[in-house]
Structures are given as structure tokens and as C-alpha cells.
């Protein structure tokens, strides 16, 4: 690593005099991550930072700005100076928190640069569950009393809770027909599923991967537009049930509002190169993360659509203010 870095520094030093004007980036760039080190968002932004450094010749240092359920980090990015030296990741929560009245901040406070990843929710049951297919589970849900079956995957009002509400809605049931058991993230929910404390969970499949491999849980479906590379045998809801419902926990790179156009263009192009590169794809596939890309404009359209659909789901589940 040291060799490569010195080499890089040397080449940039050599190249520097050739350029008359200090082009962006002329110094290290800070990438803000609104979630803690070691989590999924952290992993994705770190691989992006590493590849951007190779692409643009300056270090991209990841800084975890945690707190306030993601509000603090998102707010820090939105209020950073729009000079291109503070960029960061925005996650699906930015289109959820304001509906709950937890912040004034919305996606409109950012300059979208590129959508980099989308993890669709899954449907997981205990390894010994009698339901072998998602259709069998769906029939059991339809036959159950309201509130009789219990599901989990994350906290109350979290993205996987909305996924369940949306799925139930798509089946023509009430959003709270299955009782949501709030948990501290996907790992405790997977554990409770394996301990026979829950009927199913709707977190993403990579979050339950080790338990699935251990045979303690079974993936029945994925609520995305297509199957996942790491779980090729798990059908989508559309394939299995004919339901056209898909959602996901997406992550993208953005900057503060009023980012200069040159910087946004340069960064957008670099992000596309990162996404198209083998290394990024290999990394996401190895973790089972879903690959999705949109450029700045496409990410902007995605944000508008996601904000509306998540808002509708939250109102449907009675979670919006």
C-alpha cells in the first residue's frame, strides 16, 4: 500500500506542473458517512473512496459523522461548503426522516452525484419453517388474524418495516396485518428468527447471509426488480407471486447544494468509472450488495420518486406525521 501511494504521489507531483490551473481535486477530499464504521454504508463508501483516489489522484478520506439516526451526518453534508472538498453518502433515510417530522432536511438540500447501490428487502423464515415458498407464507399471512403473525428486521418505521407494509399493501391487506416487532437492526432480528421468536423477517438477504448459510434461516423471496447475484436461487416477488412490488435501501454519493458544475461533472464521471470497474462490482457482489447505478440527473429523479413512494408507505403504515 505504501509503495502504491508513494507511486501515486510521485505521479501526481510530476503531473502537477503540467496543469496551469489547480483543477479539482487539488487536495484531499472528505467523504462524510452518516453511519458508523464497520456497517454496510461504511463499507460501500470506503470502497468508493479507495477507487476514487485511484481515479482522481487525491485521497478521499472517509469520516463517520454519526448520531441522530443519520440526521447528524446528513445535516453536516448539507451544510458543508460547496467547494467540492466535502462530499458524502446519502441513504434512503433522507427520504424518510422528514416525513416523521424528525428533521427539516430533505433530498432537495443536496446535489446528487451518483446512485451507487440498492439493497432490496428479502423475505426470510426460520430454517425449520413449514413455509417452503413465499406463496405458502403469503397464504398463511392471508389466513392469519390481524396481528397474529410477527415480523421484524429493523426498528419501528425503518426501511424494512416499510418494505413489509408495502408488501402487505400489494397483497391487498392492511399495512399492519402482520405485527412489526422492532429490533436494533437486522442482526438481532435474524437471531430472534433463528431462536424461533418470529414468523419471518424482511431485511435484506446479505444481512442474513451467514445464518442462511448455516441453514438456520431460509430466503423465500427478494423484493427487488431482479434476482441478486449472490442469491441466484431466490426468486423476486414478481416471479413468485406476480406482485409488481419492489423497494430497497439505496445509497448514493452527493454534495451540498450549489456544488459548481465542473466539480459535479468531474465527480459524476469518476463515479461512473468506479461503478463500471471490475473491483467495485466484485466487492459488492462478494458481500451480496445490490448493484444499481444512476448518474447525477438519474439519481435526482430517483430521489423524487423515492421520496414520494416512501412518504406514501409511511402514511399508509401510520408512521408519518
Amino acid at each position: 500500500m505504501i509503495e502504491r501511494r508513494t507511486l501515486l504521489a510521485a505521479t501526481t507531483a510530476l503531473a502537477a506542473p503540467a496543469m496551469a490551473q489547480p483543477r479539482w481535486p487539488a487536495r484531499p477530499v472528505t467523504l462524510l458517512c452518516p453511519w458508523a464504521a464497520g456497517g454496510g454504508t461504511d463499507a460501500v463508501i470506503r470502497i468508493i473512496g479507495q477507487l476514487l483516489e485511484r481515479e482522481l489522484g487525491q485521497p478521499f478520506n472517509v469520516v463517520n459523522r454519526t448520531g441522530g439516526s443519520g440526521v447528524v451526518g446528513h445535516a453536516a453534508l448539507a451544510s458543508a461548503a460547496p467547494d467540492g472538498y466535502t462530499l458524502g453518502m446519502i441513504t434512503a433515510e433522507i427520504c424518510m426522516l422528514h416525513w416523521q417530522g424528525l428533521t427539516e432536511l430533505t433530498f432537495r438540500n443536496f446535489t446528487p452525484l451518483g446512485l451507487m447501490n440498492n439493497d432490496p428487502p428479502g423475505v426470510l423464515v426460520n430454517g425449520a419453517s413449514p413455509h417452503r415458498t413465499v406463496n405458502a407464507l403469503a397464504d398463511a399471512i392471508k389466513a392469519s388474524r390481524p396481528g397474529q403473525l410477527k415480523a421484524s428486521g429493523t426498528g419501528q418505521g425503518g426501511i424494512w418495516h416499510l418494505a413489509l407494509a408495502g408488501w402487505l399493501d400489494a397483497m391487498g391487506l392492511r399495512a399492519d396485518h402482520v405485527r412489526w416487532v422492532p429490533s436494533n437492526g437486522a442482526a438481532p432480528a435474524m437471531q430472534d428468527l433463528a431462536a424461533n421468536g418470529l414468523d419471518f423477517t424482511t431485511n435484506s438477504l446479505p444481512e442474513g447471509r451467514a445464518i442462511i448459510d448455516a441453514g438456520r434461516a431460509r430466503a423465500l423471496a427478494v423484493m427487488g426488480p431482479e434476482r441478486l447475484g449472490a442469491f441466484p436461487q431466490v426468486p423476486t416477488l414478481k416471479e413468485a407471486m406476480g406482485l409488481d412490488y419492489s423497494t430497497g435501501a439505496w445509497r448514493g454519493i452527493a454534495g451540498p447544494l450549489n456544488l459548481p458544475v465542473e466539480i459535479a461533472t468531474a465527480m459524476g464521471a469518476a463515479l461512473k468509472k468506479v461503478y463500471d470497474g471490475e473491483e467495485y462490482k466484485a466487492f459488492l457482489n462478494s458481500r451480496g450488495f445490490g448493484l444499481t447505478y444512476a448518474d447525477g440527473a438519474g439519481f435526482g429523479r430517483h430521489l423524487v420518486a423515492a421520496d414520494a413512494s416512501l412518504g406514501a408507505a409511511m402514511r399508509g403504515a401510520g408512521l408519518a406525521r
Partner: peptide, 23 residues
């Protein structure tokens, strides 16, 4: 065994395990 963290330290370690392909 299951990717379920025993404490806050292993919660971070799991992220690193995945990142390094030692799923």
C-alpha cells in the same frame, strides 16, 4: 458462525470480515 455480533467490538469486526472476503 452466524454473522451476529456478540458485542460492539465484533459488530465492527464483522464488517471488516465481510470487507476482506472472509464472510
Amino acid at each position: 458462525l452466524f454473522g451476529i455480533p456478540g458485542d460492539t467490538i465484533t459488530a465492527i469486526a464483522i464488517g471488516v470480515l465481510y470487507m476482506k472476503g472472509l464472510n
